[in-house]
């Protein structure tokens, strides 16, 4: 459930295990299982496929036969949507925001998670509680004070300012998630390195980071999704229309052309595509990451 802009998947729970393997299938698999799985598959993909179809239809075709395969493929919808909603600039801005947000969150959450998992600081339990509670505050509530602050700090109406807000909003979850990865890395690795005379920094860069890589990829993907899809804060904190990320151009586009659902379809497809490719590229790593994180079972 996407909730607010703070939205991101849950952070790690539970004691994790190292790389998990699928357990061998036991018992026979009933065909009913496949039927149900396929039904769910249809439920997940059906609307997406219809949506893709609608982006290739003419308006009148969509009105008369909304559920059929398009008779002729109107690729021009994509060009029109691209132009009308200025999606090129939107995507470029989104790229900057996503890369900036992901890089920053990885550094911030990386440091914090490492400190919490390894340095045995006092009060880390309290800190976890704080992170949980601070993620449960409704963003709409502090929008105005935050805006005030951003104007004073000259961060208003700049992509960097937006990125900093995303750092603040998305870091707590990323930290909790990453921490649970790091707990699972056996301490022996680091101790061995230290015995070999490696300094703390070298331990960090040569032992901890490589081992936590799946964890970083996971929080990177999750943060990228959150930043890419966020619109409420973006539209508030960016005044200059040439700086708006694609999520907001789509949002306003949808209202501007309610009647032309084919263009909405095309614009939506354009917007989804980059994240889809990113996910497909990372999905194996991502799922490994989730498996080996604290989210992996006991």
């Amino acid at each position: 459930m996407t909730t607010t802009p703070t939205d991101s998947p849950p952070a790690g729970a539970a004691r994790g295990r190292g790389a998990a393997r699928p357990h061998p299938v036991t018992g026979r698999v009933s065909s009913l299982t496949y039927v149900l799985l396929c039904a769910l598959l249809l439920f997940a993909l059906g609307p997406l496929v219809l949506f893709a179809f609608s982006s290739l239809k003419t308006q009148s075709e969509l009105a008369t036969s909304p559920l059929s395969f398009p008779t002729s493929l109107r690729w021009s919808n994509f060009a029109t949507a691209w132009e009308q909603a200025n999606m090129g600039a939107g995507l470029l801005n989104s790229l900057i925001v996503v890369v900036g947000t992901v890089a920053g969150v990885c550094v911030i959450a990386g440091c914090a998670a490492y400190a919490m998992a390894r340095l045995d600081l006092p009060g880390s339990g309290t800190f976890i509680t704080y992170l949980l509670v601070s993620s449960s505050l409704p963003t709409q509530m502090f929008l105005v004070p935050l805006f005030y602050l951003w104007t004073k700090l000259n961060l208003y109406d700049s992509l960097f300012g937006l990125i900093v807000i995303y750092w603040g909003l998305f870091s707590p979850f990323a930290t909790l998630l990453l921490r649970s990865f790091m707990i699972t890395i056996p301490r022996e690795f680091e101790e061995a390195a230290r015995m070999d005379g490696a300094g703390e920094l070298r331990v960090l860069f040569q032992v901890v980071l490589p081992n936590a890589l799946p964890g970083f990829l996971t929080i990177a993907l999750v943060t990228a999704l959150s930043a890419y899809n966020e619109f409420l804060i973006a539209v508030t904190f960016i005044q200059d229309s040439s700086l708006l990320p694609v999520s907001t151009t789509f949002f306003t586009f949808q209202q501007g052309f309610t009647q032309d659902y084919t263009l909405i379809g095309a614009a939506g497809m354009i917007m989804v595509l980059p994240m889809l490719l990113l996910f497909l590229a990372l999905q194996r790593r991502f799922i490994e990451g989730v498996s080996s994180s604290g989210l992996g079972g006991a």
């Binding site: 799985l37 598959l41 997940a44 999704l225 899809n229 917007m271 989804v272 996910f279 999905q283």
Partner: peptide, 26 residues
């Protein structure tokens, strides 16, 4: 159910996850 099937596990898993990456406005 996915832990109990042998084939197409990856396909199902990816397909189920796809709606999650779509923005709420879409």
């Amino acid at each position: 159910a996915l832990t109990r099937i042998r084939r197409f596990r990856l396909l199902f898993r990816v397909a189920y996850f796809l709606p999650y990456i779509v923005a709420s406005v879409i």
